[in-house]
């Protein structure tokens, strides 16, 4: 009973599944085709692949000890930024969702202004605005600016997800809680959110994945994340192809791992419908 994974779209078509042999054969054909194209393309460019250079940027052996290379150090910064931003963006998102659903005109107004501002300007501009304008005014460093920009941006989108989850819960739940004497806050905390979050977990996961990807933009304000480290190495070595392949693969590995973990958590939570 997984409705939100990629596999479900295949089930929706009334056609029979192709046989696995044909299916895998097709897949290999496409991969082979792309590889040939790639190979011929780089050949005509006369590109000299130097993959052997790459491992030391990931890990190196120094005096019998494994030492993290610049790419791994960058990845750690990316983790720090996305980790903090993720928590903050969910807080902003939840708060904004609750404000938009509140009876207070002021709360709804503030939420509305925040959402419109964030959704109708580019993330890069928001990042620059926070770093170059708010940063000096409020005396905050580039790491904080990066986190603030990312969490405000992703929070606006998360709030839509939270809102959809909250309004999807049947009003009978509110009425039952009301008649038992629960406060509004208690109703959110113990009745509505636990049910809503189960429903929106897939959407929140894609939000987290977006956050990881969007975090690459912080390299533009010289935060030494994975992307910035990549740029640095390319500038030094001119190994553009190898380095960007590697950086992309690292992002991919992280986001796929995250999706898989959350999928597993989800199927555990699904015990209760």
């Amino acid at each position: 009973m997984k409705e939100n994974t990629y596999t479900s779209s295949a089930k929706m078509t009334p056609f029979r599944k192709p046989s696995p042999v044909v299916d895998i054969g097709l897949f290999l054909l496409v991969v082979a085709g792309l590889s040939v194209l790639m190979f011929r393309g780089t050949k005509t460019l006369g590109y000299n692949w130097q993959w052997y250079q790459i491992p030391r940027y990931i890990l190196s052996l120094e005096q019998g000890k494994l030492v993290a290379g610049p790419l791994i150090k960058g990845l750690m910064v990316t983790f720090q930024i996305t980790g903090v931003s993720l928590v903050l963006s969910f807080c902003f998102g939840l708060l904004t969702a609750i404000m938009r659903l509140s009876a207070s005109f002021a709360a709804r107004g503030i939420a509305r202004v925040y959402l419109e501002l964030v959704r109708n300007t580019p993330l890069l501009v928001q990042l620059f605005f926070i770093y170059f304008v708010l940063g000096p005014i409020m005396g905050i460093g580039r790491f904080t600016c990066a986190v603030l920009a990312l969490s405000l941006f992703e929070g606006a989108y998360a709030s839509e997800i939270f809102r959809a989850g909250i309004v999807s819960i049947h009003f009978g739940q509110w009425e039952a809680a009301h008649s038992l004497g629960l406060s509004k806050l208690q109703t959110y905390r113990y009745i509505i959110l636990p049910q809503a979050i189960r429903r929106i977990l897939p959407a929140l996961t894609s939000q987290a994945v977006s956050l990881i990807k969007d975090s690459a933009l912080v390299s533009t304000i010289a935060v030494y994340d994975l992307t910035m480290r990549g740029q640095e190495i390319v500038a030094e070595t001119y190994l553009a192809f190898e380095v960007w392949f590697t950086v992309a693969a690292i992002y991919l590995a992280v986001t796929v791992t995250l999706s898989v973990i959350i999928n597993m958590m989800e199927s555990k939570l699904k015990v209760v419908s």
């Binding site: 049947h170 009978g172 039952a176 008649s179 009745i191 049910q195 189960r198 209760v272 419908s273």
Partner: peptide
């Protein structure tokens, strides 16, 4: 709040908390 505590209500659609 006091009245909500003192008055219990049972609904047609039960409205139990499913989680």
């Amino acid at each position: 709040l006091e009245i909500r505590k003192e008055v219990g209500m049972v609904f047609q659609s039960f409205n139990l908390f499913p989680h």
